[in-house]
Design a protein around this nucleic acid. Structure first.
Lengths: 190, 190
DNA sequence: AAAATAAATGAATATTTATTCAGTTAAAAG
DNA sequence: CTTTTAACTGAATAAATATTCATTTATTTT
């Protein structure tokens, strides 16, 4: 028997992300995905049950990927601010280096593709972030506000800047990132 | 002869926004728009040349609407901070009270529907915002940073919070808005 | 009140896109 | 080296969706 190509699913994911970044979620077809991944349309159906399946699998993969990156290098024994900055910088890193994934995730939230099951699975992935914020509040480093307010401020302030920079083709400079972090920290610290 | 129903285009716009909020841009069909607007499919083509046309017209309309709201009550003779706060609060107002438009605009940016012409037309609508920021920098109220950084911070910090609150079905309380404004102002003031 | 005209309808048609499948190829097992 | 088996192909089919059009309805004009 012939074994499955280990890299093919990854090729399909990359191709899909690339297409969605260019044309949006509404602009992709199974045949455009296949041809971008340099395989036959039929082959897609060996790896994924259907289009819905493909998108849900990729969505879950991107979320998993994002959360892994967020806590890359995080040490819970280090001082809070150190850990907080690492996670914040990792969020930036994910949004910048995996901008296509970022766009794909954004587009999916309001799409008809993502199932309740997938939403439930991926919602749970936020736990470590909430745990981080709880720690910050317990240790009196962060203002005693709702997790949702803290989390959205933490991510949102940088999000729009990266989007806008990418669209206008402007390069993001390290000092700009540092500047925005300081603004954020001053805002959130208690 | 029979005149055109003056309200019909508006009905179509409302129906489209409602559907996009529910199912995303990828989930709408001409027949679903028609039935949500309580008209026949064919009638859509009296008011709009085709689906692309409809979406571009609605996109332009939403952008126009947003910018109008942003400067509602703005008086350039008032002190800068007063005007800045009015505009900031109006951005919040637009995002909250016209959340469906906000979602639609977000989804369109990466879609295959929006033409270069529409992008060009709507890009120009940002001028008054840039003018406001320039004034702030000239009068030394705002930090001397890129307009894009200032504008995205101004809008982005609140954006994510509103989105998240809407999804989790949590009510946004006035004091939360005031809190976030203070954080923003402290961040941006020179 | 009748004629004229354009809006409105929704079923029919055209187009696009997802999915399948008969045939082909390539790897592994014997 | 032959057999077996599953991946792979892409044209064919099915399903979904955009668009058209013959017909009906409503409004204005004369």
């Amino acid at each position: 028997m012939k074994p499955r190509d280990q890299h093919k699913a990854g090729q399909v994911f990359s191709a899909t992300l690339h297409l969605v970044q260019q044309k949006g979620l509404a602009g992709i077809t199974m045949s455009s995905i296949a041809s971008a991944a340099r395989i036959a349309t039929g082959t897609l159906y060996i790896y994924f049950h259907n289009k819905n399946d493909l998108i849900n699998a990729l969505f879950t993969e991107c979320r998993k990927n994002a959360l892994n990156i967020y806590f890359d290098g995080y040490d819970e024994n280090a001082p809070f601010k150190t850990g907080f900055k690492i996670v914040w910088m990792n969020i930036v890193k994910f949004r910048m280096e995996h901008f296509d994934q970022s766009v794909f995730l954004d587009q999916c939230y309001h799409s008809p593709f993502i199932t309740e099951t997938t939403k439930e699975i991926t919602r749970k992935m936020n736990q470590p972030l909430y745990k981080l914020l709880e720690r910050g509040k317990e240790e009196k480093h962060l203002k005693d506000m709702d997790n949702s307010l803290l989390l959205t401020f933490m991510a949102g302030s940088i999000n729009e800047f990266i989007k806008h920079s990418k669209y206008s083709g402007r390069k993001i400079l390290p000092y700009q990132i540092d500047q925005i972090f300081e603004l954020c920290w001053d805002a959130l610290k208690s």
